[in-house]
Design a protein around this nucleic acid. Structure first.
Lengths: 223, 223
DNA sequence: ATCAACGAGATTGTTGACAAGATGTTCCGA
DNA sequence: TCGGAACATCTTGTCAACAATCTCGTTGAT
């Protein structure tokens, strides 16, 4: 692979690489993203990098200020709370619909995820638990058939990676969230729309509380 | 003004012009948007048009297919319903918060809008009613202090202009929606969060019903 | 020591030309 | 008349060079 990814391919490649680097902690908020550097690092052209940065700006992952370049956007705790409130509103909608219209296969997979989560916590398998957590949320959204909400939630999650990372590391967190996740599974798989919405709301209210707590305790983002 | 708007200025200019043209009905879904034509029509460069189209694609107002250019995106009734469901979820959140934290001035303006709406319907002043309607929704969102929801709702509305247009023209529509709007005003201004959320939900459920009805009755979008 | 002006280097913004792909038309054979 | 191959035209995608602006370290005066 000596020749550079050009155009649309490079554009997506760069965007994904930056998202990945952010998840991995290789990029910190406030960090400058220089077009030429990125182009060389990822083997593309400046044009492709420019367009990728536009995409990331639309997702509110980076911030572009004219004539001064792009930087990783810093997300305040207050904003993280607001994002989670929006997530809650939209996921309640999805949970309600999913409880009403999920297929038998989807309900079965939900219950399986619930059982696996219980097992993962018992085993202390935190990585597995985290993956199941993500799959649970995805499956509820998928089962709801609410494509618009799905896209909206995808956007919302972009800037949150940093906080998700911090939250998941709090000791005892899985044990605390497990019953909340099991309640979601029971309500959706059990076809109880209102209970499903309540369970999602309770879970995300708890996440918000954790976020607020992390504001005072752990290391706050630098700038 | 003989010289062309270049760069960022032109970019926003074109995006706004297209949004405006869509509202005015000068552009119909499926219509092709040729870069060079737009550049000449709006007195900018092809580069600026390209970037404007990217912005509009992010807002899901236009659809870009590689090597084949941009077209005005068609929004199905089903998608319009999903968009309105999301709007409902987010506006309920905003109404709840607004009821709790609006300033005295904001509550006073809400009541004034309510009174003006009543008057506008009595007078048959449809344009004025429509403007008040929009201001009411904006004010609730503003009073909620939920910036993230505000941005999200702005995005959601982009592709809807076409349907808003069709709905507002249905005879007897203002008389039907007036009590719903007044209920929102009373609940938010009266500091009753749960009633505010219920009032918003009831209003948007009705809008969804109207959307579904418009699917069978009036002229459906062409393509 | 502080501050302002200056300038070199770094970085982003813009342009015009060209390449590559899509669309529509014409013309020929069956 | 219909189908389809060859061609002409239109349109988008890409690039490299140039222009404009910003950043930051240096210098010199108070």
């Amino acid at each position: 692979m000596t020749d550079r990814l050009t155009g649309a391919a490079g554009r997506e490649h760069v965007a994904n690489a930056i998202r990945q680097a952010l998840r991995a902690g290789d990029l910190v908020p406030g960090q400058r993203l220089v077009e030429l550097d990125l182009a060389e690092a990822y083997g593309t052209t400046r044009g492709a990098v420019r367009e990728a940065l536009q995409d990331l700006a639309a997702e509110e992952i980076v911030e572009i200020v004219p004539r001064r370049g792009a930087r990783i956007r810093a997300v305040s705790v207050e904003e993280a709370v607001q994002i989670t409130e929006c997530r809650s509103a939209l996921e309640q909608l999805c949970a309600r619909k999913a409880a009403g219209r999920a297929s038998d296969g989807q309900r079965a997979e939900l219950r399986r995820i619930g059982a696996d989560m219980r097992q993962a916590v018992a085993d202390g398998a935190w990585d597995a638990y985290s993956a199941l957590n993500q799959r649970l949320h995805e499956l509820v959204i998928e089962a709801s058939g609410q494509e618009v909400a799905r896209r909206q939630l995808e956007r919302l999650n972009g800037p949150m990676v940093r906080f998700q990372f911090r939250l998941a590391l709090r000791p005892g967190r899985p044990a605390q969230s497990l019953p909340q996740h099991l309640a979601i599974v029971d309500a959706v798989a059990g076809a109880d729309p209102e209970a499903a919405a309540r369970a999602v709301a309770a879970h995300l209210d708890d996440v918000i509380e954790q976020l607020r707590a992390s504001a005072t305790g752990a290391s706050a983002p630098r700038m």
